[in-house]
Deep mutational scan, measured.
Amino acid sequence: NQASVVANTLIPINTALTLVMMRSEVVTPVGIPAEDIPRLVSMTVNRAVPLGTTLMPDMVKGYA
């Protein structure tokens, strides 16, 4: 099973992502692959992402 990116904290809308905000976890449904974490750093989220939420491609500006 592939690990996905999961919010390690509440990420407010329009926040630039940092490494400490994200962790990898095997979850269903599958979200952004964990190997993309380095690429996500400094990208911003377009909605509030609660703790434990899987990051989906449409949640990160410029990812999809």
Score class of each variant (00 low, 15 high):
Q2S: 12
Q2W: 11
Q2L: 14
Q2G: 15
Q2E: 15
A3D: 13
A3K: 06
A3L: 11
S4E: 01
S4P: 01
S4F: 02
S4Q: 02
S4I: 02
S4L: 02
V5S: 03
V5Y: 02
V5C: 04
V6T: 05
V6P: 01
V6A: 03
A7F: 02
A7M: 04
N8G: 08
N8M: 11
T9Y: 12
T9S: 10
T9M: 14
L10C: 15
L10Q: 12
L10K: 12
L10F: 13
L10A: 14
L10I: 14
I11D: 01
I11Y: 00
P12F: 06
P12I: 05
P12H: 12
P12C: 07
P12T: 12
I13V: 14
I13T: 08
N14C: 15
N14S: 10
N14W: 11
T15D: 03
T15A: 08
T15P: 02
A16E: 08
A16R: 11
A16N: 06
L17A: 00
L17E: 00
L17Q: 00
L17M: 06
T18H: 05
T18D: 05
T18M: 09
T18L: 07
L19C: 13
V20N: 09
V20G: 14
V20Q: 15
V20S: 12
M21G: 03
M22P: 00
M22I: 15
R23I: 06
R23N: 05
R23V: 09
S24A: 13
E25V: 05
V26F: 09
V26T: 10
V26W: 10
T28Y: 13
V30A: 10
V30E: 15
V30S: 13
V30F: 12
V30D: 15
V30N: 13
V30Y: 15
G31N: 01
I32W: 02
I32S: 01
I32A: 02
P33L: 08
P33N: 09
P33C: 07
P33E: 05
A34W: 06
A34K: 07
A34E: 10
A34N: 05
E35H: 13
E35K: 06
D36P: 00
D36H: 12
I37R: 08
I37W: 03
I37P: 00
P38I: 09
R39P: 01
R39A: 08
R39D: 04
R39S: 10
R39H: 14
V41L: 14
V41R: 06
V41G: 01
V41Q: 07
S42M: 15
S42F: 13
S42N: 14
S42D: 06
M43F: 13
M43Q: 06
T44S: 13
T44F: 09
T44Y: 13
T44M: 12
V45P: 02
V45R: 00
V45T: 06
V45F: 01
N46H: 13
N46E: 14
R47K: 11
R47V: 06
V49P: 01
P50D: 14
P50S: 09
L51A: 10
L51K: 08
L51V: 12
L51Q: 12
G52D: 14
G52Y: 05
G52R: 05
G52N: 15
G52K: 04
G52E: 05
T53W: 12
T53K: 09
T54L: 05
L55S: 00
L55I: 15
M56E: 14
M56H: 07
M56K: 10
M56T: 15
P57N: 08
M59P: 02
M59D: 12
V60Y: 01
V60A: 01
V60G: 01
K61F: 10
K61S: 13
K61D: 15
G62R: 06
G62Y: 10
G62C: 15
Y63I: 04
Y63M: 05
Y63A: 04
Y63S: 04
Y63E: 03
Y63C: 05
A64N: 15
A64D: 15
A64Y: 04
